[in-house]
């Protein structure tokens, strides 16, 4: 009898895949990046623009506003290339040029002096517990169930 007895918790615990610190940070970073996203989906008409049949709107604009002197159309081509710099590239440049003195980097608010608050990832109310596997917060068994069914290790944002 005795050898048949086993702890469910210990057995489950051995099977659990627990996300390590680095993976949790990676998830957190992805979640923050998602907050900066302009769009969730891809451009629905990305391919449409390529079609030669579709009227290009810029051209309509151009003809509509030619009341004044004719604009230099030549500069338009390199216009796009000349100024196209991503935010990361700009930040890099700033870093090189402006090492001391107030800048974009130094103006950022420092971490708060107050402790973090924790809210249930499922229902949004204050939470007391942390998911063992992924580190998300939950407040009740019900919410933990939902969390495990939907996001815990399945969620890839």
């Amino acid at each position: 009898m005795a050898d048949k007895r086993e702890s469910v918790r210990i057995k489950d615990g051995q099977q659990l895949r627990i996300l390590d610190e680095a993976a949790r940070r990676r998830r957190q970073r992805k979640a923050l990046e998602a907050l900066e996203q302009d769009n969730f989906s891809e451009d629905p008409h990305a391919d449409l623009k390529m079609s030669k049949k579709a009227p290009k709107f810029e051209e309509v604009m151009e003809t509509a506003s030619t009341s004044g002197p004719k604009k230099k159309r030549k500069s338009r081509g390199d216009f796009k290339l000349r100024y196209r710099k991503s935010f990361a590239a700009l930040l890099e440049e700033e870093h090189m040029l402006n090492k001391d003195g107030p800048s974009y980097v130094t103006a950022c608010a420092p971490p708060s002096k107050f402790p973090d608050r924790h809210f249930c990832a499922v229902c949004g109310f204050p939470s007391a517990y942390t998911c063992v596997q992924c580190g998300a917060r939950y407040c009740s068994v019900k919410c933990l169930g939902t969390h495990q069914d939907t996001r815990c290790l399945k969620w890839t944002a």
Binding site: A109, S112, R117
Partner: peptide, 22 residues
């Protein structure tokens, strides 16, 4: 709780002060 992020960015893991603390 959504506008609260202005006051507690750390609620979603942005490790910065909120506007009043700032």
């Amino acid at each position: 709780s959504v506008p609260e992020l202005l006051f507690k960015p750390s609620d979603v893991g942005i490790q910065e002060m909120g506007i009043s603390e700032s």
